[in-house]
Structures are given as C-alpha cells and as structure tokens.
Simulated assay, not measured.
Amino acid sequence: MAKRTLTTYLWKNFGIVIAISLCFGLILAFFCKNWQISGLLFALTLSFSLGFGIFCIFLFYQLQHLQKFLDNSENQLDNKIGLNPFFEKSALKIQKISQEKQELSERHQQLDTMRKDFVANVSHELRTPLTVLMGYLETFSEQPDLEPRWQRAFSQMSQQSLRMKNIINDLLLLSKLENDNNLGEMKEIDMPRLLTQLFDDAQAQNRDFEHLIHLEIDSQAHLQGYEDYLTSALNNLITNAIKYTPKGGEIHIRWTEQADGYHFSVSDNGIGIAPEHIERLTERFYRVDSGRSRETGGTGLGLAIVKHVLNQHHAKLHITSQIGKSSTFSIIFPK
C-alpha cells in the first residue's frame, strides 16, 4: 500500500512538473522567429530537460527533509517544516515501527535476563536440599540389614539424585558462561599438556568400553583462554565419543595447526547422527535418543556448554556424521 501510494505521488508530481515545462516550451516556441519542426522539437526537448531537472531537485529536497525527520526522533514537530505531507506520514509510520522494534528488543533482553536469573537461582536453591537427600540415601543404602527390595529402591534413588545433581551443576555452569563478567581473566593454555591429560582421563573412562584411542599432536601451539572451561568442553566431546561408540570401537583425538587456525577434533566409528539432528545438537536438553542418553547418564546440556565455552574463545564447532559409520566433532580456534 505504501509503495503504491509513493508511486502515485511521484508520478503525480512528475506529471505536474512536465506539464508546466511543456507550457514553458510552447511559449518559447511561440516566440521563435522561425516556426519550424526543428524549432518545436528543440523547445520540447528543452522543456522536458528542464522539467526532469526540476523534478529531481524537488525529489532530492523532499528526501533530504525526510532523512532529517527520521534522524531526529525527539523533536518531530520542528522537523515537519518543509516536509511534504506524504513523506511526513510515511516517516511517522517508519518511526513508529522503529520504536516498536526497539521496545520489543529491550523486552526480549529483559525476559532473557529474567530467564537466566531464574535458572541460576532455582538451580542454586535446589542444590542444598538435594545434597541433604543424597546424604541420607547413602546412609540408608549402606545399612547391612537392609532388605534386597529396599536396596534396589535406594540404588535407583541414588542414581536419579546423582543425575539431578549433574543437571543442576550444568545449569549453574551455563548461567556462569552466559555472564561474561564472571569468567575471570584469560591465561595461556599449554594445549599439548592439556590434551595429554585429557587422553589419560579418557583411558580411565575407557576401561568398560575397550576402545582403541589415538592421540595425535601435530602442533605445540598454546592458546589464550579459560583452561577449566575449555577442559570441560573438550572432555565432553571425548566422553561422548566413548559413550556413543559400540564396544571395541576406535577413537581419534587430534590437535593440528592449519591456515585458518588451530584445529581440535574427535572422531569415532560409532552409531552416527542423522543430518536432521546435527543443527540442534547444541540446544539445551535436546537429545537424539532420549532413552540412550538417560542410560549413559547424560544431562542433555553437554553440547550447549561446549557451544558457550567456544563462544567465549571465539571458536567454531563443526559436526559431520554418517549413520552407523562415524562422527567427527571439530573445533577451530582462531590464530
């Protein structure tokens, strides 16, 4: 509607200016001494040129006022002077839309802050009573005269309590990662040393899975970052490869330097991930297979934490996978 109105307005003004210029041209032709075809064409051409030039100057003048009007949102009435009524109306609509957009953005930021505060506060408040419950469950489950049926019940309660504790810890970690001011100061990270430590931890986790784990370090580069958070993120990727690869699989951990940055990758020959799931893997509580995730003790927050940690290090995560064949999680750190 606005576009059609603008077109009508421009054509109307263009027609008026051309009509005036034609009259001007005819007057010139009338006063010509030699009334011939060439003189008439010259007059018409001149009038069209003058008319088009006047129209362009008029349009430029109106657009200049429109720009000044839109740039100053605090004093609209003063800016109306010299502005065509059509542009004034359009400018007011544009200005109103801009203000509504800004209000929605501020509201979104406010709601996002409220969400972060709510998650952090609830997680913090749940941790204390959960710790008490876990303490009593551990005490009761260790009683020597406990009946077998109660042993199974206390064992399940202890497992679920531990799972809830892991979820709360991950939520608190996410809340902290979302607040840049709480992370402290970046320090130099010895990546070969860190990866060797993660490899040793992976071998300890691997006892029940019997995978063949390889570590390849082709670069001695160090990074500037938050070592504790980066350790958690990299360990999460390695742990996932161990958990979601069938027994006796093969896992490769690599650290290399390439033209576009430093590359860390974890590859496995496990169950793979369908393409429709890859884009959503870093969402909170998103699971490809809910049943399998619960069996392995996953919280559904691991890759969300990885994404936030990488954002703090200006790094990018790339995921490639084939169902039933392999998966590769790669991180590119800028140089």
Rank of each mutant, 00 (worst) to 15 (best):
A2K: 06
T5L: 09
T5D: 12
Y9I: 08
I16W: 00
V17K: 03
I18K: 04
S21V: 06
F30L: 15
F30W: 12
W35K: 15
W35L: 15
Q36F: 00
S38G: 13
S38A: 14
L41P: 01
F42C: 07
T45Y: 05
G53A: 09
C56M: 04
F58D: 11
Q62R: 01
Q62I: 05
L63D: 10
H65E: 13
N75C: 04
Q76T: 04
L77S: 14
N79S: 14
F86N: 07
S90H: 02
I94S: 08
Q95I: 02
Q99A: 09
Q99E: 12
E100S: 12
K101R: 05
E103Y: 01
L104A: 15
H108P: 00
Q109G: 09
F118N: 13
N121M: 01
N121R: 01
S123V: 01
T131R: 03
V132P: 07
M134E: 02
E147R: 06
R149T: 07
Q151I: 02
R152N: 11
A153F: 08
S161F: 02
M164Q: 14
M164E: 14
I168D: 07
L171T: 04
L173Q: 15
L174T: 09
K176W: 03
L177R: 06
E178R: 07
E178M: 09
E178A: 10
G184D: 03
D190K: 00
M191E: 00
P192D: 03
R193H: 11
L198T: 04
F199K: 08
D200M: 08
N206A: 10
D208C: 05
I213Y: 00
H214P: 08
H214L: 05
E216K: 13
E216C: 07
L223D: 02
Q224K: 12
Y226P: 04
T231Y: 04
S232E: 10
N235G: 14
N236S: 15
A241V: 06
I242N: 06
T245I: 03
T245G: 10
T245L: 05
P246L: 09
I253G: 09
I253F: 10
I253R: 01
W255E: 11
A259E: 13
D260A: 11
Y262Q: 13
F264I: 04
D268K: 03
I271N: 02
I271A: 04
G272H: 00
E276C: 02
H277G: 12
I278M: 06
Y286I: 04
R287V: 07
S290V: 13
R292A: 03
E295Y: 01
G298L: 05
L301S: 11
I305V: 13
I305M: 11
I305G: 10
V309A: 04
L310M: 14
N311C: 06
Q312M: 09
A315T: 07
I319C: 08
I319L: 13
I323F: 09
K325M: 14
S326Y: 13
T328E: 15
F329E: 14
F329Q: 13
S330Q: 15
I332W: 00
I332N: 11
F333Q: 02
P334W: 00
